[in-house]
Amino acid sequence: MDRRDQRDIVGGLILVAFGLGMAIYSSMNYDLGTLRRMGPGMFPMGLGYLLAFLGAASLLPTLLGKGERVRFQPAIKWGPAGTILLSVAAFALLIRPFGLIPAILATTLIASQAEHGNRLWSILGLCAFLVALSYFLFIYALGLPMRTVNWPL
């Protein structure tokens, strides 16, 4: 069993857990009703079991040793992935209290770290371009009610 197989097994197990969790959660929290008059819980419960079944079925080829050997397996890029997600989170955190421009600046600065080779001046140029573009598109053209800069303190 090599690393490829382990990844398939983890993926399948997550689905099984998620499916069972969903089925149990919906049968405990929502009215199932009858087959004729289904309550809000019936359909999601069925889905949960189906998902768990499919997750288990996706494990089978690997467990039986007949896994897809030649498939392309992407490497896990923790750093870039974390950086990009952090840049989106920064936008979510800053847009309300500080306004559009600080949020754009923070997101651009963080996201530009995800790829190698960005020089400071090109990042600053990009910041200026994105602020101008967003201002024109979203505030001037579409007239959205967003504050551009705000100092909450």
Binding site: I84, I95, T108, L109, N118, L126, F129, S134
Partner: peptide
Amino acid sequence: YRLLVPAVIVLICIGTYS
């Protein structure tokens, strides 16, 4: 591409928020 990445992310964020 390295300059496209932040631009795409910023547009995604503003677009969704808007």
